[in-house]
Design a protein around this nucleic acid. Structure first.
Length: 112
DNA sequence: TGCTTGACAGAAG
DNA sequence: CCTTCTGCCAAGC
């Protein structure tokens, strides 16, 4: 029995990262999803922060549509100036307040 | 071993 | 709406 109930083992962390990359690769053009959603789909609801870390530091993530991942408020990643332009380029509409119009673009993943 | 750092989320002011 | 704080938890030092 683990001292910390939901702490990841090395194997689980590796699997989690694979799942995250796989899920991001499935986001359709013109749609977006959130860090928390991806973490939940991967089976670790409390690991939203690790999703961001994975996308940022995993080599090869650049070739995935990781720009289609925003936070739950529709805010783009701080320090990544190209984030918004990349989304607008594929038709994503931003509200006057600078946030993605989530109601319009949030991706509804299929049940598997 | 212990403290700090985030591409987060939610609540508070 | 924006800033700050708290909870969260793997990684880095």
């Amino acid at each position: 029995m683990r001292h910390y109930p939901d702490r990841m083992t090395v194997e689980e962390a590796k699997a989690f990262q694979n799942d995250v990359l796989d899920i991001v690769g499935q986001i359709p053009r013109g749609k977006v999803t959130t860090y928390g959603m991806i973490a939940t789909l991967a089976g670790w609801p409390s690991h939203a922060r690790m999703v961001g870390r994975t996308l940022r530091y995993t080599p090869g993530a650049e070739k995935l549509p990781c720009h289609r991942v925003v936070n739950i408020a529709g805010r783009t990643a701080p320090g990544w100036s190209q984030h918004r332009p990349l989304l607008e380029q594929e038709g994503v509409i931003f509200k006057p307040n600078g946030h993605v119009d989530m109601l319009r673009h949030l991706w509804e993943p299929e049940i598997m």
